[in-house]
C-alpha cells in the first residue's frame, strides 16, 4: 500500500511534521517493498490559505491510499475524504517510527478533523 507521511525532512530519519497542510515534505512510501521518495510541499509552506486543500491534492496525485500525520484540519479532511484517502493522525517521532506504527496497526483511522484551519 502506498502511503504519504508528513515530514520535516526528506529522509526516513526525519521527524514527522505535526502539520499536514504545511509540512515541508511528504515521504511517499510503499508499505510492502519499503521503497520511498520525498515529495516537496514547499508551495504550501507559506500559502496564505488553502494549504490543506492543495496538500491533499498533491498526495492524491501521488496515488496514495492513506495519509499519516500529526493533525488534520477540516478542509484537508474533506478533500482527502473525497479523494478516497484514509487519514491516520497522532503520528510522532521519526518517519520510520510512524511507518512502523502504521504497519502494525497502532494508528487509528481518523473520522474527522481534529484541529481548526490555520491552527499552527
Amino acid at each position: 500500500m502506498k502511503i504519504a507521511i508528513s515530514s520535516q525532512g526528506k529522509e526516513l530519519e526525519s521527524r514527522v511534521d505535526q502539520r499536514f497542510g504545511r509540512c515541508s515534505w511528504f515521504i511517499v512510501a510503499d508499505t510492502e517493498t519499503g521503497d520511498y521518495q520525498a515529495v516537496s510541499n514547499d508551495q504550501n509552506l507559506s500559502a496564505a490559505q488553502g494549504a490543506g486543500i492543495q496538500s491533499a491534492e498533491i498526495v492524491s496525485r501521488q496515488g496514495v491510499e492513506a495519509v499519516v500525520t500529526g493533525h488534520c484540519g477540516p478542509k484537508a479532511f474533506r478533500t482527502l475524504n473525497v479523494a478516497g484517502i484514509k487519514i491516520f493522525k497522532g503520528a510522532e517521532g521519526t518517519v520510520a517510527d510512524a511507518l512502523e506504527k502504521f504497519k502494525s496497526g497502532a494508528l487509528a483511522e481518523a473520522q474527522g478533523a481534529d484541529v481548526e484551519g490555520h491552527w499552527s
Binding site: I53, A56, E57, S60, K75, T79, V82, A83
Partner: peptide, 22 residues
Amino acid sequence: CGEICQYSAIVYVKSVLTFEKM
C-alpha cells in the same frame, strides 16, 4: 477549474470539490 483557481476554492480529486468560503 481546479487548475485556474488561485484560491483553492475548487479542487479536483476524483470528483470536483468546492470550498465556497475560499
